[in-house]
């Protein structure tokens, strides 16, 4: 009965979960968590609920923004007609048959958009150009498939916090997948939140996703959150 109460206050633990503590205090909390099981469970549960909360509102980020809202901004511009929507879409909505990655990666989506753009002017491009386009598309496709496999493996075998890395022999892209949290939904299915850091041309971008495990051991990504540039970790 002695250990029924936590040795750290809830506010400190929640600030710890939110990454609001300075490193010395955070270390102190971590030490306490080693001996205080109730506090440890509290932290785990809080962390889980925060992740769920973030993901639970993600649908809105995937939806098309109603035109009348964009108009509020556009109609106040002198050059309203010149705004090109394709340049400002944060969450690509385009569905690609090759799986979730086309939608998942801003870089990949941008590249796909570029390819489609170039493809429109096919007649005007020379043969070599066409080959390059095909090659680029193929490399992207292969990268996506092989990245998907790495992600699946990371989710299947890695403990939370342990990254699994991937790099493309062709495009020079690299990525790492780190499961962050694991939980079960009410049907008993395992779902894991993960962070994906991808490096393209020396620039790293992070994505958070939630994948759930199907019966056949395949992890299907259900939600993705892009970290905005101004919100770097």
């Amino acid at each position: 009965m002695k250990n029924e109460t936590m040795t750290i206050d809830e506010a400190t633990l929640i600030a710890y979960v939110d990454g609001e503590l300075d490193s010395a205090t955070a270390r102190e909390v971590e030490e306490r968590l080693g001996t205080d099981d109730i506090a440890k469970r509290f932290v785990e549960r809080q962390r889980e609920i925060s992740s769920l909360a973030r993901v639970a509102f993600n649908d809105t980020m995937h939806e098309e923004v109603p035109g009348h809202l964009k108009d509020v901004i556009n109609s106040n511009s002198n050059r309203a007609q010149q705004i090109d929507d394709t340049n400002i879409i944060v969450m690509p909505k385009k569905k690609r048959t090759s799986g979730n990655w086309g939608r998942a990666l801003p870089m990949a989506a941008a590249l796909a958009g570029l390819l489609i753009g170039v493809g429109g002017g096919y007649e005007f491009s020379d043969k070599k150009h066409q080959q390059n386009i095909k090659l680029a598309a193929l490399t992207l496709e292969q990268d996506n498939v092989s990245m998907g496999k790495t992600l699946n493996q990371a989710l299947e075998v890695n403990l939370s916090g342990a990254p699994m890395t991937w790099s493309s022999p062709d495009s020079g892209q690299s990525a790492s997948f780190t499961p962050v949290n694991t939980y079960q939904d009410k049907t008993g299915r395992f779902c894991r939140e993960y962070r994906k850091d991808i490096v393209v041309n020396g620039e790293t971008s992070s994505t958070f996703g939630l994948a759930c495990r199907s019966d056949k051991g395949k992890w299907e990504t259900r939600y993705l959150i892009f970290e905005n540039g101004d919100q770097s970790l």
Binding site: F57, N74, I83, I88, V90
Partner: peptide, 22 residues
């Protein structure tokens, strides 16, 4: 209005909608 602010507002729209939904 500065066109950069405009673009930023447009890009932020999904997040404004998310917060408003909450």
């Amino acid at each position: 209005m500065d066109s950069r602010i405009e673009k930023e507002l447009l890009a932020l729209l999904p997040r404004f909608r998310r917060f408003a939904l909450g």
